[in-house]
Design a protein around this nucleic acid. Structure first.
Lengths: 177, 177
DNA sequence: CGCAACCTTGCCGTTTACGTGAAAGTACGG
DNA sequence: CCGTACTTTCACGTAAACGGCAAGGTTGCG
C-alpha cells in the first residue's frame, strides 16, 4: 500500500478518483460515468480541475447498483426507479427536518416505509421465482440420484430388472409463472 | 373458445404455430425465432409449408427460458449455456439407452447430476445475494417503523424531546459482494 | 379457388450498456 | 518545469435483444 504516485495523499476522508472508485466496486470508469449520465449518482465532489471525486457513500451506492444489475438482473432503467425512490427518501429527510408537525413527519416516514416495502416485494418476487426453479432442479436431481442408487444396487447385487428406465418426463423445468 | 379460423383443428397432440406458442408463454414470435437463431430451441416440427410447429415440451422450454431471462436476469448467452447442459442431458439420454453397461450408465447419470447441481448452485448464488439485499432493506424498514412508533408515542402522549432525529446513516443498502 | 390471415426468410432500425479513441486539461514525483 | 499517467468531454462503434417492414409462400374457411 505504498502511496505510489497518483494517490491523492491517502489521508482523511479519502475521496477517490473515478478509477479507484470504479476498481473498488468492480466497474470501469466508463460505466461509472455512464451511470452518472443516467442520473444514478453524482460524485460527492469535483476537484479543482473538475476531476470526479467519490466518497464512501458513493462507493456503497455503486456497489448497490452493481448488485441490482448483476445479482437481480435489473436494467439500469429499473435501478433508476429504485434509486429515484432513494432520492425521494433524501428529499423526505430534508422535508422531515423542515417541519416539526408530527402529522407531516408521520406522512414522510410512512411514505418511506412504503417505498422500502415496495423494494422488498420486488426482490421477494424474484427470489420466489428463482426458488421455484431451484426446487424443480432439485427434484430432477433427486430423480437422477435415485436412478444412480438403483443402478448401484443392480451392479453390486445382481440383475434387478431390465426395465426400460423410468426416466423423468422430458419436461425442461416448469419455471414458475 | 370457438375455433375462429387459423386454429389448426385443435385436436390431439396439438402442435402450435409460432404465434400461439409465443402467446402462451408471453413472448413475441420474433423473440421465439431469435431464440431459435441462437440455438436455444428448435420447433418440434415443421409443417408442409415450413411453418414452425411447437409441442408441449417446446412451450415448457420457452417458459423456462423466459423464467431465466426475466426472473433470474440471465443473458441469452448464459441461458444458452444452461440449455447446452440440457442438450447434453438429451444426448445422454440417448446414450443411456444405447448402452447396457452399468458403468457407462453410471457415468452418464453422474454427469447429469453434476449439471443439475451446477444449475442449482448458480440459482442459489443469486438467491443469496438477493436475500442479502432484502435483509438490508428490511433493516432499513425496521428502523423507519421504529421512528414511526416513536413519533406516534410522542404525538399521543406529549412533547418527548426535540432531539434532532437519529436517522439511519445515509448508506444506500450494502448489497452484498 | 379466392382471399384474408398467418407464416417464411432476409434485412435494416433501435435501445441498452457500455468500449474505444481523440483532443485537451490536470496532478504530481523528480 | 517536465514528463507521464490520469482525467475531462465529445463522439463514434458495438454486441445484445429484439421491432418492423418487405417480398413472397401457406392455410384454410367460404
Amino acid at each position: 500500500m505504498t502511496v505510489e504516485k497518483g494517490t491523492p495523499s491517502g489521508v482523511q476522508t479519502s475521496l477517490l478518483r473515478i478509477q479507484e472508485a470504479a476498481a473498488e466496486v468492480g466497474l470501469t470508469p466508463r460505466s461509472v460515468r455512464y451511470y452518472e449520465e443516467l442520473g444514478l449518482l453524482k460524485p460527492a465532489a469535483r476537484s479543482e480541475g473538475d476531476y470526479r471525486l467519490y466518497d464512501e457513500t458513493d462507493v456503497e451506492r455503486l456497489k448497490f447498483i452493481k448488485g441490482l444489475r448483476d445479482d437481480a438482473g435489473f436494467s439500469l432503467g429499473e435501478i433508476a426507479q429504485l434509486l429515484e425512490d432513494e432520492a425521494a427518501r433524501e428529499r423526505g429527510h430534508a422535508a422531515y427536518h423542515a417541519t416539526t408537525d408530527p402529522a407531516a413527519r408521520l406522512q414522510i416516514l410512512t411514505d418511506r416505509a412504503a417505498r422500502y416495502r415496495h423494494q422488498i416485494e420486488m426482490l421477494r418476487g424474484k427470489i420466489e421465482r428463482l426458488q421455484a426453479m431451484v426446487d424443480d432442479a432439485e427434484a430432477r436431481l433427486g430423480r437422477t440420484n435415485g436412478k444412480i442408487e438403483a443402478l448401484g444396487a443392480e451392479t453390486g447385487e445382481g440383475p434387478a430388472s431390465t426395465t426400460d428406465l423410468p426416466d423423468v418426463p422430458s419436461r425442461p423445468l416448469e419455471a414458475a409463472r
